[in-house]
């Protein structure tokens, strides 16, 4: 077990005027650990995700990240250049709608290669080979490398978005409802793929979802949110099999059995 957390969140709050986005959220995330943030729409889970991923400035609180050199840095005291560099190298962000995370008008290869080019890769053949390899890892046929994501199905787009993020070997992924809007069979494939990639790459991830099955399959730990606050947290199977908080019991009991 590594001695230090990768990502440390302390008392993060976000207020919109006098409305609460999320309030007093604290947790640690260790390398290789997947944390699910669950709750219904409006529970503040997306606000929290945005505050953690530097997409939204929190009203108060501290978010620190342990850099590759081992130093822990307060994200909101970094320069914007450093934050953006982090976001496109050591982090990934998977949007619910792949169109938000992809460049729809350039080829799949260019989508995957963008981060490499941003890091200074200047060899077309190598970039394309790496991109093709990554398409294979997310189960997209190599002969689609020059096709635009516009010609892809929803599930393929989502897988492409994942490949685009993983190409730099990030250590932390943020995912906002990664399976939302996909057919059930497509969801299963994506989940299995994500699960495998997270395991193989030793990725840490924060996954926002309202789908408890997604949380069960992907995450080690869970945070249950309601009205911007954490109502329960713990080991994923413990929270789902022996929920303590009234709200978690309601959530778990509301799952339709197949």
């Amino acid at each position: 077990m590594t001695a230090q957390p990768l990502f440390t969140v302390r008392s993060v709050s976000k207020f919109y005027g006098n409305r609460i986005g999320c309030e007093d959220i604290s947790f640690d995330l260790w390398p290789g650990e997947v944390l699910a943030v669950v709750g219904e729409s409006g529970s503040g889970k997306t606000t929290l995700l945005n505050c953690l991923s530097t997409r939204l400035l929190p009203t108060s609180g501290v978010v620190s990240y342990r850099m590759r050199d081992g130093t822990s840095r307060d994200l909101y005291r970094m320069s914007e250049a450093e934050r953006r560099f982090l976001m496109r190298t050591d982090w990934g962000f998977v949007h619910q709608n792949p169109a938000d995370g992809l460049r729809m008008t350039v080829s799949a290869g260019a989508n995957v290669g963008e981060r490499l080019m941003a890091l200074g890769d200047r060899h077309y053949g190598q970039i394309r080979a790496t991109a093709t390899d990554w398409l294979g890892r997310v189960e997209i046929a190599g002969d689609r490398v020059d096709d635009q994501p516009r010609a892809f199905s929803g599930g393929m787009r989502q897988r492409l978005q994942i490949a685009r993020n993983l190409v730099t070997g990030p250590r932390l992924m943020f995912m906002d409802e990664p399976t939302g809007g996909l057919d059930v069979s497509v969801q299963a494939r994506l989940l299995d793929l994500l699960r495998g990639l997270v395991q193989d790459m030793g990725l840490a991830a924060i996954v926002v979802t309202h789908d408890l099955a997604v949380a069960r399959l992907l995450s080690h730990r869970m945070i249950v949110m309601k009205e911007g606050r954490v109502v329960e947290t713990g080991l994923t199977d413990r929270v789902l099999d022996d929920p303590q908080a009234p709200y978690t019991q309601l959530l778990v009991s509301s799952i339709l059995q197949v």
Binding site: L191, D192, H220, G234
Partner: peptide
């Protein structure tokens, strides 16, 4: 939770009554 996960990985094994099936594996 993190300790529990580590204990499960190396110290405590469990054979449950039912298999929780993961799609496609």
């Amino acid at each position: 939770p993190r300790t529990v996960i580590d204990v499960r990985r190396r110290t405590v094994g469990y054979v449950s009554q039912f298999l929780r099936v993961v799609p496609r594996v």
